[in-house]
Design a protein around this nucleic acid. Structure first.
Length: 923
RNA sequence: GCGGAUGUGGUGGAAUUGGUAGACACGCUAGACUUAGGAUCUAGUGCCGCGAGGUGUAAGAGUUCGAGUCUCUUCAUCCGCACCA
């Protein structure tokens, strides 16, 4: 075999590991470069070809940066806490740590075979106590902080205590949910327990009774981002609302900064937009409406205070606190019935039932704060209890839902917009002039909004306000396989453990299930099963999956530090992740939470950057190519794809490993599953069984999963790496089809052959290179650099192919040319590059070489082939000296006999000459 | 409904600032060579047409000497959000 990739790849993978070729330097004069791939959850299924796609891209880029002289940090680790290992543990009784360790081993084996330039000495595993000690420590920091809106950052809870001691809470501007005002004296007089309870309402992570998404099937609560279409993202189980005492993270304190700082990062518009949507900022005013014959007031939130004169009714959420007390006797029964109906609907039903307009009049009236008119008050489930104040002022002329509601229940629709027609629909644009609205009349909406807020504040009716859709993030999970909290209880009051006691490790339990009273699995542990046990009991919940992944990129900088989660010095040196590659499915989970924690850690002065990931690329999903066989319903025989129409057939997915180029290996098929052992076939006219095919998501059940292992075995890691890149742009979803892999493999063989004679003897020539070869080389240097700089990994592979094809045609085996080519190729196909580099007489790894510099002199041509167009249509090429002037080019072109043919005796109206580019003649 | 992305041969895709559309690769066709190999080489391959030629980047319009690329309208597919006041 001429290009023995197996031997070469084994050799160099071993070499890199032994020599720690890709170890990042902590102290270096070189500029730093931090390239990161999202770390995987090590599932039992192992890697399929979709996983390495992003890793290969970041590996290539990291290698490229190293060649450019950067000190590169390119680490890898495992997000190793998670549900699948725990579900497996519940079924088998095996400790999740064992399953996890096995899966990690498998992953590592697969990763090693692809030749990644990871610095494995920095590996992190979120489920290791040495790692989660610091997750617990960061939790404590958040627990011991509050959000000061005056300084607009998180501060230590001690500073809040001293404010309370001096002046109570009246002047404090904080993000909190403490409802009462107290003085310094009152604070001093509080019992220890009351003080703790009060502080809890200010802490950035806090314990509170809150409505949570409870998933009975998983036995745990879920955060909003863990729910898709009303069911759990993992497993697709139903979710219900439940009031539970839970830890939450006050991420809402960071809502504004999380929106604003999106402008400072280089991420895709789609992800930024998803985050903006998720945070859901809306600016407006809160206004209090007095009630007729009732002391209470109803507070509403509106983004259109300019339309306040258009209010013709109010709507409360059925769950609103005041519903029962304001409802008149006449409507008591109807309201109770409506509330009951609404409560029976699940969140999902409610969303699915958008078109159905329902509601119920309470019989009560509010008083319009400006006109003093009486306004009907209704309840309807289109108003959500959880957003704003759970009440709206309905302006049917300016809001489609209000308009629909008013039409449906025959409520008056006032038009307070000048020159608009609202007979068919509401007018929802802000580009409008207000009418019939007293002091707002004749103002444009945007001005009117400002004036209305001013007036509302002047009259003490309310205030300007900004609302966010973002909710505080539930941080407790009733599961075993997660980080324990560094929290213990005295009675019902939680306390944080001292730093010196960390980590709290997972205690042994007799089963990975909730207790009989519904307590989380950790409640099964005896007191002495805990490595730390204080107070009356430890916290039984564990942290969610995103805890460990919210800061892992920091730990890579300083993975062995036992004194700190990362030293200030190293955090300052490595700074932000320069390039983050991973899937877009984490848009509102991991990517939002890690931004939140980064901002918090920056507020506390531990790091000096506010955003974790400067640039991000989201790789597209690799889809599988499924194959099908067709079973005749009558005879049970399998019919070839091209004959299937002649029969009544049922389509079945067939294992793609038993199919080659859509041709079924019938023997292999018989051996596949026992039920097919005696299969009979109806072949086509060529005596072949042809399978149908379709592009689908890769999944076990479709038998279309491609693992990298078999491809590495067949073609080698270098081929796999190049092929995954060659498939198409990194960000795009694309079907995986192994057909094309031969072409990429051939390219590497051709590359090998440039360095060898017919007998596979290494043979390169010294001396001056051919001009043509130098042109090819420098053209390639230029293209590869440009491609890498714009992350166009696929076109770079094409350009390598072109280069190798051209050098092959030129019979070029010039040492100087080939040497530079090897460096260029080394980021993509590192094993073959190392081997050829060594054969060229080099003793150090090619990764320490310098990226070749492009010299434009080699590209200069004496002549240029001008495409000559007539009326914009290219007709022929004409080779002319490159230094010819515009006028001379025009003369030469018109004088050419081919031009006469297209001119057809007419005079050209106009001749456009772009020197070095094109000629266009207008006839 | 709102927001984002994408539409180019039989297939994956290329064309970076408006300047030869289809690079590169797969597949296919024909042929050569064979120590029969997922080998190599030669020629061809968008569509229509024997040909000259015509036509062609989802559809339509526009700007321009010139549009896959810019503007507008429409359509299709994918993704995200969705009674958010």
């Amino acid at each position: 075999m001429e290009y023995d990739f197996r031997q070469i790849e084994d050799k160099w993978q071993k070499y890199w590991a032994e020599n720690k070729t890709f170890a990042a330097q902590d102290n270096s004069d070189k500029p730093k470069y931090y390239g990161l791939s999202m770390f995987p959850y090590p599932s039992g299924a192992g890697l399929h070809v979709g996983h390495p796609l992003g890793y290969i891209a970041s590996c290539i880029y990291a290698r490229y940066k190293k060649l450019q002289g950067y000190n590169v940090l390119h680490p890898m680790g495992y997000d190793s806490f998670g549900l699948p290992a725990e579900q497996y543990a519940i079924q088998t009784g095996q400790h999740p740590a064992i399953t996890t360790a096995e899966n990690i081993k498998r992953y590592r084996g697969q990763l090693d075979k692809i030749g990644f330039s990871f610095d494995w000495d920095r590996e992190v595993r979120t489920s290791e106590p040495a790692y989660y000690k610091w997750t617990q420590w960061i939790f404590k920091q958040i627990y011991n902080s509050w959000y000061n809106q005056t300084s607009d950052k998180a501060e230590s809870i001690d500073s809040l205590i001293s404010i309370f001691e001096k002046s109570g809470n009246a002047e404090v501007k904080a993000v909190h949910d403490h409802e009462t005002v107290f003085t310094a004296e009152e604070w001093q007089a509080f019992s220890e327990e009351d003080k703790q309870k009060t502080l809890m309402n200010y802490r950035l992570t806090f314990l509170a009774d809150s409505w949570v998404n409870w998933c009975p099937a998983l036995g745990t609560v879920l955060a909003n981002d863990e729910i898709k279409d009303g069911v759990s993202e993992r497993g697709g189980h139903p979710v219900e609302q439940k009031l539970m005492r839970q830890w939450s993270m006050r991420i809402t304190a960071y809502a504004e900064r999380l929106i604003n700082d999106l402008e400072t990062v280089d991420w895709s518009d789609s992800i930024k937009e998803q985050q903006r949507n998720w945070i859901g900022k809306s600016v407006g005013a809160s206004v209090n409406f007095a009630l007729e014959g009732n002391e209470d007031t109803i507070e509403v939130f509106t983004t259109r205070p300019d339309t306040i004169y258009g209010v013709s009714f109010m709507v409360l959420a059925p769950e609103h606190d005041l519903v029962d007390s304001i409802t008149t006797d006449e409507f008591k029964e109807a309201i109770a019935e409506y509330k009951k109906q609404a409560s029976l609907k699940t969140e999902r039903d409610r969303q699915a039932d958008v078109k159905n307009i329902t509601g119920q009049n309470t019989g009560a009236f509010a008083i319009h704060p400006f006109t003093g008119e009486k306004i009907q008050i209704w309840i309807a489930d289109y108003v959500l209890a959880g957003y704003g104040t759970g009440a709206v002022m309905a302006v049917p002329c300016g809001d489609q839902r209000d308009w629909d509601f008013a039409k449906h229940f025959n409520i008056e629709i006032k038009n307070i917009f000048k020159d608009t027609d609202i007979s068919e629909a509401a007018f929802t644009e802000k580009d409008v002039v207000i009418a019939d609205s007293d002091f707002l009349t004749d103002l444009k909406a945007k001005k009117a909004i400002k004036l209305a807020i001013y007036e509302i504040e002047q009259r003490g009716l309310g205030k300007g306000q900004t609302n966010y859709r973002l909710r505080d993030a539930v941080f407790s999970r009733q599961r075993f396989w997660g980080e324990p909290f560094p929290i213990y209880y005295k009675g019902d009051t939680p306390y944080a453990l001292e730093d010196a006691k960390l980590p709290v490790t997972l205690p042994e339990v007799d089963a990975y299930l909730p207790t009989e009273d519904g307590e989380p699995p950790l409640a099964r542990a005896n007191k002495d099963a805990w490595n730390v046990s204080e107070g009356d009991r430890m916290e039984y919940n564990t942290m969610p999956g995103w805890a460990g992944s919210s800061w892992y990129f920091l730990r890579y900088m300083d993975p062995k530090n036992e004194e700190a989660f990362v030293s200030k010095e190293k955090a300052d040196y490595w700074g932000q992740v320069d390039l983050y590659i991973g899937g877009s499915e984490h848009a509102t989970g991991h990517l939002l939470y890690s931004r939140f924690w980064t901002k918090f850690l920056a507020d506390m002065g531990y790091i000096n950057f506010n955003e974790p990931f400067k640039k991000m690329i989201n790789q597209g999903m690799i889809l599988g190519r499924s194959n099908f066989v067709y079973r005749d319903k009558d005879s049970g025989k399998f019919v070839s794809f091209d004959k299937r129409k002649e029969f009544k057939t049922a389509r079945l997915n067939v294992d793609i490993n038993r199919v080659d180029n859509d041709k079924l290996d019938t023997e292999a098929f018989k051996n596949w599953l026992p039920e097919f052992a005696n299969a009979e076939f109806i072949l086509n006219d060529n005596g072949e069984y042809i399978c149908g095919n379709e592009v689908e998501k890769m999944s076990k059940s479709k038998y279309n999963v491609q693992t990298p292992d078999e491809l590495v075995e067949k073609f080698g890691a270098d081929t796999l790496r190049c092929y995954e890149m060659f498939l198409g742009p990194l960000e795009q979803a694309k079907p995986w089809d192994t057909k094309g892999i031969n072409g990429v493999h051939n390219f590497l063989r051709k590359l090998w052959r440039l360095f060898h004679d017919e007998n596979n003897n290494f043979l390169v020539s010294k001396g001056e290179a051919d001009k043509k070869s130098l042109k090819t080389l420098h053209k390639t240097i230029k293209k590869i650099k440009e491609d890498l700089d714009r992350f166009s990994f696929n076109t770079a592979v094409s350009n390598f192919m072109i280069c190798v094809n051209e050098l092959g045609e030129q019979n070029c085996n010039n040492r100087a040319v080939l040497k530079k080519l090897v460096i260029l190729v080394s980021a993509y196909a590192p094993h073959i590059a190392e081997e050829l580099w060594q054969k060229l007489g080099e003793t150090e790894s090619v990764s320490f070489a310098s990226f070749p510099t492009f010299n434009p002199d080699f590209l200069i041509e004496a002549n240029h082939k001008y495409p000559v167009s007539f009326n914009g249509k290219m007709r022929f090429l004409l080779e002319l000296p490159a230094n010819l002037s515009k006028d001379d080019i025009e003369k030469e072109v018109l004088a050419n006999e081919q031009s006469q043919k297209y001119l057809d005796g007419k005079d050209p109206k106009k001749v456009i000459v772009v020197p070095g580019k094109i000629v266009n003649i207008v006839v």
